[in-house]
Computed example of a mutant assay.
Amino acid sequence: SLTDLPVNILSIAIMMKLGLAPLHFWMPEVLQGISLTTGMILSTWQKIAPMTLLIQISHLININLTIALGITSILIGGWGGIGQTQLRKIMAFSSIGHLGWIIIILKFDPQLSLFNFILYLIMTTAVFLSLTSISAVKMLDISTSWAKTPALTSTLMLIMLSLAGLPPLTGFAPKLLIILELIKQNATALATMIMLISLLALFFYLRLTYLITLTLPPNTPNSLIVWRTTHPSYLLTAMINTMAIILLPMTPN
């Protein structure tokens, strides 16, 4: 029909704004070049408007376009993050992968896509706030953060596993619901494919988790520790982190 071309062009433009693969090339480089706080805004707040537009025109979008870009994003998001040592680039590829899950279900169930997007915002905000609190921009930084902030570092580990989609954490809910919806829509092959591809992302999340928790204790920390220092309380970080970990029981039926 006459609306197909304009809608497809608009969809692709919005998806480029979101940073979906293969239109993602700007995102890792931009995120690497800015501070953690600005990176958090770019990865969360800046995506609300284009995602809102995309959900509003979801009934017009070509389903083949969403599936193709969704699969590509999940693949690139996992593949690109494996070799990275910079945490901001890892979060950029993590964002690309999560947006792939959101887009792939958009045509089937826009409400589920919105639910997934909200949880993505919560989990990504939690990671960036935690990284900001411990001033970590490289993998080396989080491997030595245990001695300084053990509670926050442990929480960060759980958030990473939540981003990976492991039960019983918050991040398991959207993946479970998306897989169930795809199976309900007789797209079992697609569901199987994205589950297998998402194992790539699971690898680098587990790699980060390993660095956070298993490499430093019980070794002598390499960082200079100043004892009896007062640490500021991060109430917002604590609240967001809690939501990023334990929201699974609130999953809608």
Rank of each mutant, 00 (worst) to 15 (best):
Thr170Phe: 04
Ala151Asp: 11
Leu161Gly: 00
Asn186Val: 09
Pro174Thr: 08
Ala126His: 02
Ala136Trp: 08
Leu248Gly: 02
Pro168Lys: 09
Pro249Leu: 03
Gly165Phe: 03
Ile197Leu: 04
Ile245Gly: 03
Thr124Asn: 14
Pro167Ser: 01
Thr125Asp: 06
Ser135Gly: 05
Thr155Trp: 14
Asn222Phe: 06
Thr125Trp: 10
Ile245Met: 05
Thr155Leu: 14
Thr213Gly: 14
Ala147Leu: 13
Asp141Asn: 09
Met123Ser: 06
Lys138Asn: 15
His231Lys: 08
Leu169Val: 03
Ser162Phe: 04
Arg228Asp: 13
Lys175Ala: 07
Thr153Cys: 11
Ala238Thr: 14
Ala164His: 02
Ile194Pro: 03
Val226Thr: 13
Leu247Gln: 07
Gln185Met: 14
Thr170Asp: 04
Ala189Gly: 00
Thr230Pro: 00
Thr188Lys: 12
Leu248Val: 04
Ile134Leu: 15
Leu235Met: 06
Leu199His: 00
Asn241Pro: 04
Ser223Tyr: 08
Arg228Ile: 05
Thr124Cys: 08
Tyr234Ile: 08
Ala151Arg: 14
Leu202Val: 07
Lys184Thr: 15
Thr188Arg: 11
Asn241His: 02
Phe203Gly: 00
Thr155Ala: 12
Leu140Asn: 06
Val127Met: 15
Ile240Gln: 04
Asn222Tyr: 09
Leu236Gly: 00
Tyr205Val: 03
Ala136Arg: 07
Ser145Glu: 08
Met157Gly: 10
Ile245Lys: 03
Leu236Lys: 03
Leu247Tyr: 06
Trp227Glu: 12
Pro150Thr: 10
Met123Val: 08
Leu235Thr: 08
Ala173Phe: 10
Leu236Val: 09
Leu202Asn: 02
Lys184Phe: 12
Pro174Gly: 10
Met195Gln: 01
Thr229Ser: 09
Ala187Cys: 05
Pro218Ser: 10
Lys184Ile: 13
Leu206Ile: 04
Asn219Phe: 10
Arg228Tyr: 09
Val137Leu: 10
Ala191Thr: 07
Ala173Trp: 11
Phe203Val: 06
Ser143His: 07
Ser135Tyr: 13
Leu156Asp: 03
Leu140Val: 09
Arg228Ala: 08
Leu182Pro: 05
Leu166Glu: 01
Thr242Pro: 03
Leu131Asp: 11
Leu158Ala: 02
Leu121Gly: 10
Leu199Met: 05
Ser198Val: 02
Leu158Gln: 00
Leu200Met: 02
Thr192Pro: 00
Met239Val: 12
Ile183Arg: 06
Lys184Tyr: 14
Arg228Val: 01
Thr242His: 01
Leu235Ser: 06
Pro218Tyr: 12
Leu182Arg: 06
Gly171Tyr: 09
Thr230Met: 06
Met239Pro: 00
Ser198Leu: 01
Ile183Tyr: 12
Thr230Glu: 07
Leu236Ser: 03
Phe203Ser: 01
Ser135Asn: 15
